[in-house]
């Protein structure tokens, strides 16, 4: 399982319908739409401040991983 690809896909999926929500990370206030775009583009700051922690949580919290997989319509394999 490629956790980084999974995290980016999950962010993009969650953002659907709430693109205008905002997140404050890396000393920047950005919309969810911008977050998804920057995560996909591999923006260094977003990677360090948000994508890496997202990947870490996917790897270390099985319940969280299952919930994210369910959102994406995938199974845990």
């Amino acid at each position: 399982m490629n956790f980084r690809k999974l995290a980016v896909a999950a962010i993009k999926e969650e953002v659907k319908g709430k693109e205008d929500n905002k997140i404050f990370i890396c000393n920047r206030l950005m919309t969810y739409a911008e977050l998804a775009q920057l995560a996909e583009q591999g923006d260094e700051e977003v990677k360090k401040c948000f994508l890496d922690p997202y990947v870490k949580k996917l790897k270390t919290v099985p319940e969280f991983r299952l919930q994210v997989l369910a959102m994406l319509g995938l199974s845990n394999s």
Binding site: P53, Y54, V68
Partner: peptide
Amino acid sequence: SGKYIASVAMSN
């Protein structure tokens, strides 16, 4: 409650 982005921020 399906707020995974917020959940990651809270864990951080």
